[in-house]
Structure formats: structure tokens, C-alpha cells
Design a protein around this nucleic acid. Sequence first.
DNA 1: TAGTGGTCTAGACCACTCT
DNA 2: GAGTGGTCTAGACCACTAG
Lengths: 265, 265
Amino acid sequence: MGQGQPAAAPEPKYWHLRTVLLRTIEAEFSTGQVIPNERELSARFGVARATLRQALDQLELEGRLVRRRGIGTLIAAPRVGIPVGSPVGGPAENGPGSAGGSTWRTVDCVSAPASAQLALALGIPAGETVHTVRRLRVVQGRTMAAESLHVPESAVPHLPAVPRVVGGTAEQDRAKSVLRQLERLGVDGESRSVELGVAEAEEAALLERPPGTPVLVVTIQYAVAGRLVALALSTYRADTCKLTFGEMGKVEVTPVQAGAIRTAS
Amino acid sequence: MGQGQPAAAPEPKYWHLRTVLLRTIEAEFSTGQVIPNERELSARFGVARATLRQALDQLELEGRLVRRRGIGTLIAAPRVGIPVGSPVGGPAENGPGSAGGSTWRTVDCVSAPASAQLALALGIPAGETVHTVRRLRVVQGRTMAAESLHVPESAVPHLPAVPRVVGGTAEQDRAKSVLRQLERLGVDGESRSVELGVAEAEEAALLERPPGTPVLVVTIQYAVAGRLVALALSTYRADTCKLTFGEMGKVEVTPVQAGAIRTAS
DNA sequence: TAGTGGTCTAGACCACTCT
DNA sequence: GAGTGGTCTAGACCACTAG
């Protein structure tokens, strides 16, 4: 009966909506402003609320929107460039154009036998004691990442053997000791990787986000003379972070707005 | 009337489901196997199909599952480690433990005036001609990334002035010329960044994925003597890629399974 | 043709924030 | 209490793949 065009893979409604919304918010809204609520938008576009939400989900994943329960949906600020650098413990590693005021805040410091997985990754016998420092990376007053730094006992033999410090300033001191010892080793190589993940319950809480929040999982292997001495597992908030791996001091030109260029083509 | 506990922020059903499913598939399934279909799973767990799908969405985002229309839901293979390295044009940049057989396949090569956004990012006057090479990164026979390499005309003045080559081997040659000229410049610095994004229509097609697919957007600024000479915008499939930024030749120990360690804690 | 995942709907209720 | 986003349901239909 004359089907007209060959279908041409009809674009899903939610995807079309996302595009329309993106154009709208770029043209008519600015950072921090709240857009109309979901029920109104879904009515305005003549779709079910679930469909509208699918479109908003996309834009949130792209870091263009932030949704706050009880408040509304806001235009997100551009992502913050965060250097993922060599210094193991250094508090501030500022690069021009990048985030200033980056600090680490220690959460935890425990020494415990390595799990099978962890031992494998560290290249040590299973069950060997590993010092684990958990800390948060705070940039411009906002918690951007949670990190677990694993250091096998054998790599930092000069650490005073404290049985089991937990809580208070004692734990903070313990964490500092581990970091200091690690720095003294003179790390001369590292291998970094980035992949997509989601924050689980505890991690999510540290990042002040709900479980399931997308994160960029950064794995850093620190080595001394070709021998692995530490493993850092960091999860960065994917909504607000742009990780930078600059060879500092060489180039550090204008921060590029990738989204704008990719879309503009 | 005695409310019992202080609520304790009840875990959403879909999140609990995700955890249960994750444990199940880790224990009882292996890479490539298909798990029961959505209708059966939703019945088995006593939830609506939409709720089950929310759980599967999470696991897919984590790279644990792959869903294929008309086929079923499969256990995904572990992510492939892909070096994001310095060589501008080099075909294979293999690191031990990382992906071998990495090649680039040229798609496009056009010379056109820079858009405002692109000019800004390249630090050139708007409207200056820019050579853009689009190519795909193929690893182990699978398309993993799409890249747009932008080189301002002024950076590679020795390029033969071809008016507008499109299609066929001529375009391929043109692309090679641009890459060769760029290599001859002797790039001595670069700045890289990674952030989360989604693939739009055309890009998604190149990556053989539906629109909205999560990608890792890699931005590389190439410099010669402190001057920006090229800008590469690459989008890597977030489901299958783990990007590695190793200082090659120093360490390259066992590839770490971040997920396993993060979950095992 | 049967079975799969993908999209969409209309409606309900909950958890949270602000006033 | 009013308004917001977050979760969940039950059902429908579509697009794709396979035998």
C-alpha cells in the first residue's frame, strides 16, 4: 500500500527531545538556572514523563544538567579540569587553566591482609599486610574524587609497626606516615588508566551522590626501579570532572570545550 | 506510633537487583554467555520489566553486560586496555599487556574554514582554513574510537594546496599527507584530557552503536615549541575501552581489574 | 513466525526541600 | 503543605534476529 520512505531508522522520541532540549538550554538558559519541571516539560512536548526523563538522563550524563531532588533541574557548570598527576601525596598540583585549590582529605587508614584480587594486582603473596589510605580529593571546596591507595607492607618497611590505629588524629598521622614513606622511595614510574564505572554505596556517599552515579575510575600503578610499590584506585565524579593528563610545564593552552566543538560540526 | 528505625534511606529496588544480578553473573556465567531474557528475569524477581531494565542499564554502563536486540543479554568481555599515546600518526603503538593490533582507518579528510569554536580552541583567527582528518581506531578487528584531527593550514604550510579532494584514494592520500607533515614538525609536547560524553548520530554510526552511547571523550593538544599545532578529538567506546596513559617502557605490570578490587572490598 | 531487547504510555506513590 | 525529582508498575507496540 505504498509505504513511502524506507523507514530510515526513525529516531527515538527521547533522543530527538534531548537534541531539542540541548539547543534550548544552550540558547535560553545559563549556568545555575532551573529549567521548567518535568511534569510541565512532558506536557509541553506531548510525551510521557518517563520519556522526557530519558532525555534528561542523557543530558545529565553529558554533564549539561544537574537534577536536585526537591529543587528542580539546573543547568550544570562546565566540567572542572582536574590534573591526574604524578605526585603521590602532594596537596596542591596546580596547572594554569586547571583547577586550583586541590587538596586531599584523609578518611581512613587501615592495615590489613590483602584480598586475593588485591594481592594479584600488587604482585605480592595473598595475605601479606597492605596499608590502605582512603582519602577524598577536594577541589574548589567540592568533593571530586575518592581514592584508595594501597601500599604493601614490604614496600615501606620503615613504617613504625602500629597494631591497629583507627579514628582520630592517630589515624591521620598514620596516613601521613604512609604517604611520606612512599614519597621517600622516589617513585620513578607510573602507569595510569581510565575507565567508566559506577559508584557503589559507600563510595557514593563519600562523593555525596546516590549509588549508581557514573564515575571515572582511575588506576595508577606506582613503581620504583621497575618494581610495583603502590596501587591507587580513584573514582572521579564523571558529571563534574574532566581529567587532564598533561605533561605539565610544556603545553597548557586554552582549556578546550570538547562538547561545543563536537556538537558544532 | 513507633516508627521503628529511622528509615535508613531504603535502597532502591533496581539497585539491589543490580547487586544481586552482578553476584549471580560473576558466579554462574562466563564471557559471551546469554543470561535469561528480561521478561523471565522480571517475573523471577517479582518486579516490573522497567525496574529490571534499570538494573541491567547499570550493569551495561559498568561494562559487565552487552545487550543485543533480537538476541539477548550477554556477559561482556573484560575491557580492552588501549594506549592513548603520543604518536600522532603511528599505526601500532603496542605495550605489553595492552591491545595489540591497533590501527587507524581514515574516513574523511576535508579542508574548510574553522568554526568559531574550533578557531578558539586552536588559537587561530576564525575562518582560517583547517585540515580535518577523521579516522577510526580499530583494535583487534573492532572499531573502538572515532577521531577528528584538526590541523590549521598555517601549521603545515608545506602541504600541496589541493582544492577539495573528496572520496577515493585521493582523499586517503590527502589524509596521509597531513599526518606526515604533522609528524615532521616534531611534536614536542602535548596535553591530554578525558571526560564522559555520549555519541551523537554520525559518531555513533561510526562506532557501530546507537545514538546516546556513552563514550570517553579524549582531547589532545599537540604543540611544537610551545605553539599549538593540532587538536585531536577522539571518542572511545566507554563500554569496551579502558584508556591507558602509561609512560611506556617504564612500568607496565599486570593489567589491573579495577572492578574486582573495588567490589571485593 | 517466535523470541528478544527497545521504546513509550498513564498513572501511582515516595523522598526530599523550601516556605 | 506544596512542589520537585526518584521509583515503580502493568501493559502495549515496535525493531531486530533467527530458524
